[in-house]
Computed example of a mutant assay.
Amino acid sequence: MSGDKCSEENIRQCHELCRQLSNLIAQRVIGQQELIDQILTAFLAGGHVLVEGATGIGRGLIVATLAKAIQGTFRQVYFTPDLTPADLVGREVFIEDLTSGQRRPQLEPGPIFANFLVVRDIPCALPRIQSLLMEAMESGQVTVAGRLRDLPRPFFVLATQNPAIQEETHPLPLEHLDRFLFFLKAEYPSAADEWRIARSAAERPPDLTPIVEVEKWNSFSGLVDQIEFPESLLGYAWALVRASRPRASDSPDFVDRWIASGASTRGLVAFIRATRARALLRGRASVELEDILAVVKPVLRHRISPNEAAQAQAITSDALIDMIMEAVPPNRRYAPPDSSIGAR
Results as ranks from 00 to 15, higher is better:
Ser2Trp: 04
Asp4Gln: 13
Cys6His: 13
Cys6Pro: 01
Glu9Asn: 15
Leu17His: 08
Ser22Leu: 04
Ile25Phe: 03
Ile25Asp: 00
Arg28Ile: 09
Arg28Pro: 07
Gly31Thr: 06
Gly31Ser: 03
Gly31Pro: 05
Gly31Phe: 02
Glu34Thr: 14
Glu34Ala: 13
Leu35Gly: 09
Ile36Asn: 00
Leu40Thr: 00
Gly47Ala: 12
Gly47Asn: 08
Leu50Cys: 09
Leu50Glu: 05
Glu52Ala: 00
Gly56Pro: 10
Ile57Gly: 10
Ile57Lys: 10
Ile57Pro: 09
Arg59Ser: 03
Arg59Gly: 01
Gly60Phe: 00
Leu61His: 02
Leu61Phe: 05
Ile70Met: 13
Gln71Asn: 13
Gln71Lys: 15
Gln71Asp: 11
Thr73Cys: 01
Val77Trp: 01
Phe79Pro: 05
Thr84Met: 15
Pro85Lys: 11
Ala86Thr: 13
Ala86His: 03
Leu88Arg: 08
Gly90Tyr: 06
Arg91Cys: 11
Ile95Tyr: 04
Asp97Cys: 02
Ser100Lys: 03
Arg104Glu: 12
Pro105Met: 10
Pro105Ser: 11
Pro111Gln: 08
Phe113Asn: 09
Ala125Trp: 05
Arg128Pro: 01
Glu135Ile: 03
Glu135Gln: 14
Ala136Asp: 11
Gln141Asn: 14
Arg149His: 11
Arg149Met: 14
Asp150Ile: 02
Pro152Tyr: 08
Pro152Leu: 11
Ala159Asn: 05
Ile165Ser: 00
Ile165Phe: 07
Leu172Ala: 03
Leu172His: 00
Asp178Leu: 11
Asp178Ala: 14
Asp178Gln: 09
Phe180Arg: 02
Leu184Glu: 04
Ala186Ile: 10
Tyr188Ser: 04
Pro189Asn: 03
Pro189His: 00
Ser190Gly: 15
Glu194Phe: 04
Trp195Lys: 13
Arg196Glu: 10
Arg196Val: 07
Ile197Glu: 02
Arg199Leu: 15
Ser200Thr: 14
Asp207Pro: 05
Glu215Val: 11
Asn218Ala: 14
Asn218Lys: 04
Phe220His: 11
Phe220Glu: 10
Ile227Gly: 05
Ile227Asn: 00
Phe229Ser: 02
Leu233Gln: 01
Leu234Pro: 04
Tyr236Met: 12
Trp238Arg: 14
Ala248Thr: 06
Pro252Trp: 08
Val255Pro: 01
Ala260Arg: 13
Ser261Met: 15
Ser264Met: 06
Leu268Asn: 06
Val269Asp: 12
Arg273Leu: 08
Ala274Asp: 10
Ala274Gln: 07
Ala274Glu: 10
Ala274Gly: 12
Thr275Gly: 12
Thr275Asp: 09
Ala277Ser: 11
Arg278Val: 06
Ala279Val: 05
Gly283Cys: 01
Leu289Gly: 07
Ala294Leu: 05
Val295Phe: 10
Val296Asn: 13
Lys297Val: 15
Pro298Cys: 09
Pro298Trp: 09
Leu300His: 01
Leu300Tyr: 03
Ile304Ala: 05
Ala309Met: 07
Ile315Val: 15
Thr316His: 06
Ile324Trp: 04
Met325Phe: 02
Ala335Leu: 02
Pro337Ala: 06
Ser339Asp: 15
Ile341His: 11
